[in-house]
Amino acid sequence: MQGSNGDTQSSSEEWLLLRVGAIPRNSLGWFRCGVGFYNKKDYSKSIECFEKAVTLDPMNYNAFQIMARACIAVNRKEDAIAALKQSVILDNPSDWQLLVELTSNRE
């Protein structure tokens, strides 16, 4: 698969193993990798990392929060809404506004 910049796109695990030589073993590690990919605007890898983070720690509302923003960046609105709902369920009040905005135009 080709990335938008012409690179061969690989999974976050493949990228980390190739470039770093290791992969995270806990939720915080995956979360931090997700933030790194997000900051590089590599939203697909970012989402993968956040998904691994919340699998290991389903209470990590920060991972759901930033995953939602990465989903918005790649036009995955329904996935963004699902992630924001989970963040709000985990009592993160900062996501209410974005959740209301995203769902206000739903049919």
Score class of each variant (00 low, 15 high):
2 Q>S: 01
2 Q>V: 09
4 S>F: 08
8 T>V: 15
8 T>W: 12
9 Q>G: 00
9 Q>H: 05
10 S>C: 02
13 E>C: 03
17 L>T: 11
20 V>R: 10
21 G>P: 10
21 G>A: 05
21 G>W: 10
22 A>E: 15
24 P>T: 14
25 R>T: 15
25 R>G: 12
27 S>P: 04
29 G>E: 06
31 F>G: 03
31 F>T: 11
33 C>W: 15
36 G>R: 00
38 Y>H: 13
41 K>G: 00
42 D>A: 01
45 K>Q: 11
45 K>I: 03
45 K>W: 04
47 I>P: 00
49 C>F: 09
51 E>K: 08
51 E>F: 01
53 A>P: 02
55 T>L: 03
56 L>Y: 02
57 D>E: 13
58 P>I: 05
59 M>P: 00
60 N>K: 12
61 Y>G: 00
61 Y>C: 08
62 N>H: 15
63 A>Q: 05
64 F>E: 05
65 Q>E: 09
66 I>L: 12
67 M>F: 04
68 A>I: 14
69 R>G: 00
69 R>L: 06
72 I>K: 12
72 I>P: 01
72 I>F: 04
73 A>S: 15
74 V>M: 06
75 N>F: 09
76 R>L: 09
80 A>H: 07
81 I>S: 02
81 I>D: 09
82 A>D: 14
84 L>F: 11
84 L>W: 10
85 K>V: 08
85 K>W: 09
88 V>N: 04
89 I>L: 06
92 N>F: 15
92 N>E: 15
92 N>P: 00
95 D>G: 15
95 D>N: 14
98 L>F: 01
98 L>T: 11
99 L>Q: 04
100 V>N: 02
102 L>R: 06
106 R>M: 12
